[in-house]
Amino acid sequence: MESNMNQGKEGRNIERPFAEGESIIRVDGLNLHAGKTHILKNINVEIPKNKLTVILGPSGCGKTTLLKCMNRLTDLTPDIKVSGNIYIGEQPVFGSKTDIVALRRKMGLLSQRPFPLPMNIYNNIAYGLKLRGKYTRAELNELVEYYLRQVNLWDEVKDRLRSPAVRLSIGQQQRLCLARGLAVNPDIILADEPTSALDPVSSEAIEKQFAALSKDYTLVMVTHVLRQARRIADYVIFMYLGEVIEMRPAQEFFDDPREEQTKKYLAGAFN
């Protein structure tokens, strides 16, 4: 048995290359079918708290789908069938008793392209805050400024907080989206190729943000940029054709890939 393979319940091998008790997300025998296609195949993996975990894998292997299972955005696609479960702490994600609204609030989401809400810049941040609780005008102002500063956007937008968010550049929009996600005070941030639509400068800005955030947040980031993963990942989950092939600390993963598919992928065979 490999050092990072742990015997899970019912004899399943759970990928957990770190000590027990440090995980915040546990994917437990997750299978996902859309119609007749088997998209996620028996996924067993744990994600450590306050680390940056990158999900790597060739296009179409199920990275986005796995990410969306974590906050159950799969609900939006009626013809999807899920078995197994994901636990956020002790909370099951799939289950009729789950308070999914509360659970989703613990998880920020950053998508491939920025999707600002159809509101002004200020309200893009305030929207989530207002869902979180009651604030006075002054408190809202303060918090909006705080989160815009967190993503280094405040100085660029402080004079036009009331103008539509879509007027910002793509890079600014993505930082706004990050600030919006942070404003609901999540424990986890899910990001799906968050820099793929950005120019190199904006991309680097987001990347730096992520590296900094991983002290206080659990980050799960899908990417297809190997070098990016190398730069910022603490752990890497490698997926191939709907399966998790291996999960390793980043350094080990890149320097000493274990599985045959991983080696091929790192050598650029799937591109």
């Binding site: 906050n71 939006l76 509360a102 989703r104 998508s111 929207y127």
Partner: peptide, 18 residues
């Protein structure tokens, strides 16, 4: 309307109706 907009709002803790 892009589905991502719905996803974003849900992920901020809004209900479907909100």
């Amino acid at each position: 309307i892009p589905r991502e907009l719905t996803e974003v709002s849900l992920s901020l803790g809004a209900t479907r109706w909100e």
